[in-house]
Design a protein around this nucleic acid. Structure first.
Length: 245
RNA sequence: AUCACAAGUCA
């Protein structure tokens, strides 16, 4: 069963969801009962290929079989709904989970927070962040990178920067993803001088830009018409050992 | 370590 689940995970990661489903049927024929993990994997695969309706079917099937959804099941489905632009549905599932009095974790919160951030509903996103804190669940880098991204996306880059400082106060160390999101915000506004400052700050904390960080900055310089600086970054990237593509 | 969440270019 573990072997099958592992195989299914492999298929899903390759995007071969049909094959994963076949493996699920094959399990049943071998008299190996799919467990909740099997279902979680399949639902995740469906969601990631845009077939969230299929995932919902699996969810129902799961309940009919008397397999109880766990926290992973919920986060997969909440994410699936949100990525299909059905935030309301995602929120409903979240509320259902809250009612169950099961202990929530940061991943479920982060999933919903990210959805609100992408939609530009920062009030809802920040309210959820406060909510998780009140329940004693610590926000993580994923929480903040979504929030920072969301703030930047509506042009409130200074608020985003402030969130980064808030992280430190909470004893969370901003990682390269948080910084990259913030840099992206400054780039979008053409504030390349600020980008320099952030880079400086990063290196003072020993955080190195990665391929995505460089891509964001190069794009920023190109769009602000500074091709010289963009080229400079490209060679700097190569020098830092990143495989340039 | 059998499963879930965050940042990028072009389309």
């Amino acid at each position: 069963r573990i072997s099958y689940n592992t195989l299914i995970l492999g298929c899903c990661k390759e995007g071969k969801v049909e094959e994963a489903l076949k493996l699920g049927e094959e399990m049943v024929k071998q008299c190996i009962q799919p467990d909740i993990i099997t279902y979680n994997l399949l639902m995740h695969g469906m969601c990631n290929t845009g077939k969230y309706e299929e995932a919902v079917k699996l969810w129902d099937q799961c309940k009919q079989k008397g397999l109880a959804p766990n926290i992973y099941t919920y986060s997969v489905m909440i994410d699936g709904y949100c990525k299909a632009e059905k935030i309301e549905e995602g929120q409903n599932l979240f509320d259902e989970l809250v009612d169950k009095k099961v202990s929530l974790n940061s991943v479920v919160y982060n999933t919903l927070i990210r959805a609100y951030c992408r939609k530009g509903n920062m009030m809802a996103a920040l309210r959820l962040r406060d909510d998780m804190r009140n329940r004693g669940i610590s926000p993580t880098c994923a929480t903040y990178s979504s929030l920072i991204y969301g703030m930047c996306n509506i042009g409130l880059v200074e608020d985003a920067k402030h969130l980064l400082e808030e992280m430190r106060k909470e004893g969370l160390l901003p990682n390269v993803i948080c910084y990259t999101a913030l840099i992206g915000g400054y780039c979008k506004l053409g504030q390349m001088d600020k980008v320099r400052d952030i880079l400086q700050e990063m290196s003072s904390y020993g955080i190195c830009p990665n391929k995505i960080t460089y891509t964001v900055m190069i794009d920023g310089y190109c769009k602000s018409g500074d091709m010289k600086e963009a080229r400079k970054l490209l060679s700097e990237m190569a020098k830092s050992g990143i495989v340039v593509d």
